[in-house]
Design a protein around this nucleic acid. Sequence first.
DNA 1: CTGAAAGCGCTTACAG
DNA 2: CTGAAAGCGCTTACAG
Lengths: 335, 335
Amino acid sequence: MSVSDATARRRVTASDVARAAGVSRATVGFVLNQTPGQTISERTRARVIEASVRLGYRPNGAAQVLASGRSRIIVLVLPDWPIEFRFRAFLDEASLALDEAGYSLVTQFRHPQGPARRLWESVTPDLVVGVVPFTADDLASLRACGVRRVLPDQSSTRPAEPDTSLASIDGPRLQVEHLRERGHERLAYAVFDEPRLSSLVSARHDAARSHAAALGLPAVDVRCLDYRDRGTDEVVRAWHDGGLTGIAAYNDDVAAAVVGAALRLGLRVPGDLAVVGHDDSPIATIMVPALSSVRFDSAALGRHFAALALSRVDGRPPPTHEPPAHVTLIQREST
Amino acid sequence: MSVSDATARRRVTASDVARAAGVSRATVGFVLNQTPGQTISERTRARVIEASVRLGYRPNGAAQVLASGRSRIIVLVLPDWPIEFRFRAFLDEASLALDEAGYSLVTQFRHPQGPARRLWESVTPDLVVGVVPFTADDLASLRACGVRRVLPDQSSTRPAEPDTSLASIDGPRLQVEHLRERGHERLAYAVFDEPRLSSLVSARHDAARSHAAALGLPAVDVRCLDYRDRGTDEVVRAWHDGGLTGIAAYNDDVAAAVVGAALRLGLRVPGDLAVVGHDDSPIATIMVPALSSVRFDSAALGRHFAALALSRVDGRPPPTHEPPAHVTLIQREST
DNA sequence: CTGAAAGCGCTTACAG
DNA sequence: CTGAAAGCGCTTACAG
């Protein structure tokens, strides 16, 4: 009765457990944290565990962080990009792998205006990872908040860490190669006019451009579409009139917009215009004609991200093996 | 020089600021937290602020949480649903509104296996909100971790809080009404076979069913599709052969799958089969034919969520006004 | 108007 | 093998 009273009244602390088990507070910590280098008798250990379970003891996170200096929290700062279809699998796998190692992954989107309070000011993370590099402002704040470990690592002059970002440029390469193999030499790259995406978009179309150049193909025509009006139709007509036959798209939605415009113009896909998307989202399979696309193994990327993050929090060198080969081209009806 | 030394060596604390400003540690806290009921001279205040800026002082979050018992962190526990298109806008708006009130919104996805460590064990949130109700296990953990405020509120017997969940059932109603207005009486409801979604899916098709019943329409035929094979074609053929003419879909991807199957079968959309989607994702505009769909005002929902959460952390009664009317039907070519 | 002091609930050398 | 004690960096009555 006094037990349930105490439970109801206020939070159970390590002192409560110690009292109930007839040991000191320190011993409670040693047992529950399995602190190495301590020799606790089996009987004592059992008494402590029994008491902590019986009382429903949960350590106070803030007190642990304050005393130990470690939170076992990793913050992932995401750019202000619209969520991509495969991204959820990336997060799921990364969280799972980190969870198994005893860490929690917490994500924060970074808006242009920026939140007044950065998350790392509140949660004392062991590590903060940015998908895009941090601003000087962010870095100053990170330092002032006592965040010791940051990825990408700014302080060192050694070569950049392995790139686990989702801004992969292997996809565009595969798209260009695939169109070339299907007999297309005059190519275009289609993107949506989505300001939030600018850095990612330009990384990808640059990759498409330079890979085409490396293959000796004519310059790739990069165009912005707006799916909300019919401007896409004109762009597609101009491509066709100009003799372009192969279109690589930033993602499957953009590819679907190109295919839709082509159909409205009476063009055959892939007869007159071959179109390849990116992300292998559900719509690629659903569309008529079904869309060739680039599939990301985002789960593998998520696991690789977790391994990299863990090596960083433990102060170990990053994993030496390359990130997994994670993109493949799925051919369907549109090429 | 000694300043930059100290900065480099270890974290700047309130004591450092106090020393530099020639005041006590308490005064530093009073000034920086703008504690009400204190009368601090303008000169002292200025000195403290100057020193804290100069030294780059940031309060230690863990210590603040431990001492004050409040973290200004709100955890939103998300079910294991695939991310819906409009969901990002919801999160953006909610985070922004909470941020303005000085709170950080942290989200955690809840996998079936469940993370070993729940986030609320580490971050001492002021409030934990679940999109779906918590399990008894979760509730026990929340209680043991000292989380005083939880939504949906389990402890009280008063009527449930206003529903801000994304499992809205107004969309299905609009779909049924719209199909009816377009002259369709024999309806079907199409979903994907996605186990992660079961609760949301059944909430929606139940809504469609009961609204059709309320309108005096024949029973709605609910069917599971699988877009990865051609089984969809057979379902759509069966609908057409059976005289069904109006199809409401769980989301725009499902609707696109139905439209695609209809086109492959040589049916006219909307002539032979009218199809209405849900979410108004980009693909609805892009598709040929363009898809009628239900648009969510998820930004307004996000703001409403924030207001509700803030009322809860402040211990105020929830906002009395209804959640905004947030769904509208956008008619395009498919109905 | 300002400061000295207790306390939040842990961890972790250190001493027995 | 176990415990007493200092310390993490704040907040907040309380006393002047």
